[in-house]
Amino acid sequence: MRSLLQLLSKYSILLMFLALETLSLVLIVRNNEYQRSSFFSSANVVSAWSYDKLSRITSYFGLRAENSVLHEQNTALLEENNRLRNELETIKYGLPEGYVMADADRSYIAARVINIKSNKRRNYLTINKGERDSVRADMGVINTDGAVGIVSVASSRFAVVIPLINTNMHLSCKLKRQNCIGPLTWDGKDYRFAYMEDIAKHIEVSKGDTIVTSGYTMNFPEDLPVGIVEDVATSESDAYHKIKVRLAVNYNSIRDVTVIKNNTFREQTLLEQTEK
């Protein structure tokens, strides 16, 4: 304290000078029209510039929360879309109000991928929703790009999803334009590509054709995007095309997914088992 006072008294004249000089500058800026306008306009340039830079940085902090909100909304919209489509069908076929088509009886659960292995042959994803959120085995999982995979097991709070890029996965798919069904498999090499089999040679397939889900499995509704044809290889000895598919989902950056809950799943499986 003493040394502070000494310092102050040593520089008292300088401090007094600076204080008076500041006062005069304040007077200049406050009382002279021209100086005021030019001072404040340049100050605005500076503050606007720094606000702009700051917001560019801070906007990243909110991105995670923002993303989750958007994902929740997306899921709600999916559900609404499904309901409206069902309503449209019931009106089209003259069915009574409130009638739910068997294949439209679905609900959606928003989830987040919390673990992913995409460099092995048997990849899997872990999501942060489990049985308490009514996620069960065999439910389909999608994201905004298309089909992701199928739930294999679910614990109380988590579930493990077998993605399309797992060598054990065979998903029934469809060439959208040609309307031909065939299973999609993965060869265990590149996470960006899978192969579609059982498409007979006489069917014309060209690069860029869209591949969607067939709707013949209980996990996925019809016409969900799966990928596009990247390359078609045909050998003389083989009766089928070997179609290389660029997957719609990028498994390297997957984060927000939606689980499709098919409410008629049990009924359908039970019925099919009695038929066996």
Partner: peptide, 9 residues
């Protein structure tokens, strides 16, 4: 106001 004051200071 202030201009000559600053210079005189």
């Amino acid at each position: 106001i202030g201009v000559n004051m600053a210079a005189c200071l």
